[in-house]
């Protein structure tokens, strides 16, 4: 075997090996979660997902408050973040392409992604929560401050860069010819954005949204600091609640009984499944957009 063929083969082998390892990590993770949650699944069955009680003393565990907390905070955060991340992406790709102002906006958005979540939680607890409390006092609602709303706002700020960065990349990759063609047909700036730039980058915008959502679903530290950690189903967003990631982080260390531990792990499994499901649905949607949008 000569040297070049050998290095070629070695290179391929390494690529394959790392590929397999990458595939193995989530697969083994899933296996571990499934195996460890067997006792809880046996004890509670499907009732686990729909039960509202979480009582470690009597060993009755239900995931509904946490499932609802995770989904509501994440989607609310997405709704709050989307207008901002969308406009930032549009501004950076269409209006502020270069110059100091562009650099400042760009690095500000990137900085948001780099801040550790505990700092967000801290800021939320010291600034945002008192603000919401004042609002609640004025509105005559119990002034908890910490709430589903507070968690959603913190999450929204945290996920803006994820949603905007991908959207911006895709928008700035649109071939200039297409846009120029639209302009030459007499399109105004706004018409070009609306009819060319945005439809062409649907898939990118959605991919960004998906990434942001994934980030929001799993966020733990910042959420646990501002959500109020009440293991009960909330009836409105001004009430405290809890999320799956947050309750796992809170209770895992002192979960001594087997069933308790297993229930927490089943929560983890549920979070894994929810995240995977949303990703899967998202991918289907992106695929449809790609066919419609790109059309090259």
């Amino acid at each position: 075997m000569n040297k070049e063929i050998f290095s070629e083969k070695a290179f391929k082998l390494i690529l394959k090996g790392t590929g397999i390892v990458i595939f193995m990590i989530p697969a083994l993770l899933l296996v571990t979660l499934i195996v460890q949650s067997v006792p809880a699944v046996r004890a509670y069955g499907a009732g686990f997902i729909f039960r509202q009680t979480w009582d470690p003393v009597r060993e009755i565990y239900g995931a509904l408050p946490f499932l609802a907390g995770t989904l509501v905070t994440s989607f609310l955060a997405l709704i709050l973040a989307f207008p901002f991340s969308f406009s930032v992406a549009l501004i950076l790709s269409e209006y502020l392409k270069e110059g100091t102002a562009a650099a400042i906006v760009k690095s500000a958005v990137e900085l948001l992604a780099g801040i550790p979540s505990v700092i967000y939680g801290f800021w939320g607890l010291l600034v945002l929560v008192p603000l919401i409390r004042k609002l609640e006092l004025a509105a005559g609602i119990p002034p908890y401050g910490v709430s589903i709303l507070a968690a959603s706002i913190i999450l929204a700020i945290m996920i803006i860069p994820y949603a905007s960065t991908i959207a911006r990349e895709v928008m700035s990759m649109i071939p200039p010819d297409i846009k120029e063609a639209a302009y030459s047909l007499g399109g105004t700036h706004w018409e070009v954005q609306r009819k060319v730039v945005i439809p062409t980058s649907y898939s990118g915008i959605f991919a960004g949204v998906l990434l942001a959502l994934g980030r929001a679903l799993g966020e733990t530290m910042a959420v646990t600091m501002v959500i109020g950690n009440t293991n009960k189903l909330f009836s409105n967003i001004f009430e405290p609640g809890n999320t799956m990631a947050s309750v796992i982080a809170n209770e895992f260390t002192e979960a001594v009984s087997d069933l308790y531990l297993s229930s927490l792990i089943e929560l983890g499994l549920l979070l894994f499944i929810v995240t995977a499901l949303i990703n899967f649905i998202g991918r289907l949607i992106i695929k449809r957009f790609e066919v419609k949008g790109a059309g090259e």
């Binding site: 950690n229 209770e251 002192e254």
Partner: peptide, 12 residues
């Protein structure tokens, strides 16, 4: 060590 609290807010 962990309870099903009838009322209140949880802090870590």
């Amino acid at each position: 060590k962990s309870l099903n609290w009838p009322v209140g807010l949880g802090g870590k």
